[in-house]
Design a protein around this nucleic acid. Structure first.
Lengths: 336, 336
DNA sequence: CACGCTATTTGTAACGTTATAAATACGCAA
DNA sequence: TTGCGTATTTATAACGTTACAAATAGCGTG
């Protein structure tokens, strides 16, 4: 019955309100935009009428007229991750966007597809007013393109391409924390599973690692033949192999859940015991390890907060804030 | 430089093509819609011109004129899950939507907010041509509302409210598989961590469980004081408690990653050994357990495939297929 | 060669909004 | 009362598309 009411009277427009109040459509439009040129009293009358009939502006018409889409685009990497990063990031972004006039749209490009393609598409067809994407590379073609185009965006991760808005996790600090924790437990030879070299954050994390092992005075290994992008089985195999070689590491740093699980499996299969023979420090973006047995030392990265931060930054940038002021380094959250 | 080219000439419209080819705007519009009323030769000429200048129709204008949005909405539950379901589902939906004229938008409602609210909002403001949502309840108010409104939608999960398009995982089959697997291993008293009673799938899973323990001739426990919605710590505590009571279960069924990890912790802390003293069968929607040690028996639910299936169904429904024909039960994927 | 029929193309208007420029009302000093 | 400046409101046009009705071209037939 509430339905038949709705379908009976057609969708309210500015004209509806104009007829109700006796003002011109233009006046109604400006009044609802809170234009100070319109008398305060008039604005109040019109606002009341609008609220009464539940007026909501037609997005398509606004978009056609103004060229502004009121949309922000989230460009997702191919769905490769096993414990998925994207879910939390989306939740964070959606959380901020919810209370704004913006809508959130989502594009995911395919494995092997040029990451620039969806971005060019969005810019050329004005499909959004700004965008967010992750996994930057030091010389990121997407960043270069967007800077040239003057299109607002925020990245998860820094680049070496000009100055732009970004939010990054402090992976150098993560590595230092992890190394120190292992050193405190008396470990003398630690190995890190490095991020794939193509990504910006690999450099930060590895240099943090090198620095920390150096000042802790212990041995540090950065393997060359596998990384976080390797398949879980491959990781597991390589680490098993290493554990059988001379002078195996007694401390492992795994900057990802799956890497940690694969490492744990290799340790277990080698007959070693976590906490006795070796230690492991993992980065988790989920809460999988909170009840893991045997206990695993973790450092947390709050991806949902990152999503919220990036959404904030993007909205600020669209509203005119300088991109240089929108650069934020997110501190690791130590646990245990 | 490719940029200055682009910004020099303004965005191509139907008018641009009309001027290029000498036809009227209307003709161009119909030609690009492949209207058979337009001569095949003309259509070819116009299509060529359009491709040449990279014409893409203005979505806002189309939407304003036709009332169709070319958008499908994905309505997400509050971000509670620890290993996140949504990421995979989004990936699946995005995968299908990518090659269509549709865009994907995303709304997430807040914990404690009325789930009907975002849905009503979408319908009343015509923000999308159809929608997808998950976690149905037997008497789902959202389903009832959308059926009344005649708005296309697909749910993840069945309901008892009329007939609509849905895709559901066969949780009864999952429970049977799990029970049988435990029975084959010689377990005589199995317990399941039940889904929260409010959701449709709880009923299916529990009845599958009851049936299977009955025909396997073993004891089955369905606890009343905790469920999949309980916090990991609470789950862990309750299960620890149960393990200390007389006649504890020697087989556990955990229809979710976090529940399985919490159960595993309780088992470990009780000094029991998985595979020797007790067994555990888990449902995983991720791949976390593939390299878990000690090994855990798992049954897989492919959420990404579910996302693809739902997107397909929704597009079909929008295109006119009867909702009754768009009901699909997804079989469990046994592993190990 | 005009007629009528079909095949093809076209002009006009409208979707709901906002930018721009123009108009009106109002108050106050001359 | 007139005139002028300010405060407020309004008419008109346009964004790019498509629905509808109307016009034109082409062609065989009488």
């Amino acid at each position: 019955m509430s339905l038949s009411e709705n379908s009976a009277r057609s969708k309210p427009t500015l004209r509806t309100i104009a007829e109700m109040t006796g003002f011109a459509v233009t006046t109604v439009s400006r009044a609802l935009a809170d234009d100070p040129l319109i008398a305060a009293k008039t604005r109040a009358v019109i606002a009341k009428a609008a609220a009464e009939i539940g007026y909501v502006p037609d997005r398509a018409a606004q978009r056609l007229r103004t060229g502004r889409t009121n949309v922000i685009a989230l460009v997702l990497d191919p769905h490769g991750e096993i414990i998925d990063f994207s879910g939390s990031m989306i939740a964070g972004v959606a959380d901020i966007v919810r209370d704004t006039r913006y809508h959130l749209t989502l594009t995911q490009y395919q494995l092997g597809e040029d990451p620039l393609r969806p971005i060019r598409h969005i810019v050329q067809n004005r499909l959004a007013d700004g965008m967010i994407f992750a996994r930057t590379e030091p010389q990121d073609a997407r960043v270069r393109y967007l800077l040239d185009a003057g299109f607002p965006f925020v990245t998860h991760g820094r680049t070496k391409v000009g100055s732009h808005a970004w939010l990054d996790y402090d992976n150098a600090a993560f590595a230092r924390f992890a190394v120190n924790r292992l050193a405190e437990k008396g470990r003398r030879r630690v190995s890190i599973i490095p991020p794939s070299r193509q990504y910006s954050f690999a450099e930060h994390m590895i240099s943090g690692f090198q620095q920390a092992v150096c000042s802790a005075g212990i041995a540090g290994e950065v393997p060359q033949d596998y990384d976080l992008n390797s398949s879980p089985d491959e990781l597991n195999g390589r680490i098993s192999l290493r554990l059988g070689q001379p002078d195996p590491p007694d401390g492992w740093i795994c900057p990802g859940e799956i890497a940690a699980i694969a490492t744990n499996a290799a340790i277990y299969d080698a007959g070693l015991r976590l906490g006795r023979d070796v230690d492991l420090v993992a980065k988790q973006t989920s809460r999988v390890f909170d009840l893991f047995r045997p206990r695993i030392d973790t450092i947390y990265e709050d991806i949902e907060a990152a999503g919220r931060g990036m959404a904030h930054a993007l909205l600020a940038q669209i509203a005119g804030t300088d991109a240089e002021e929108l650069q934020e380094l997110q501190a690791p959250i130590p646990e245990f």
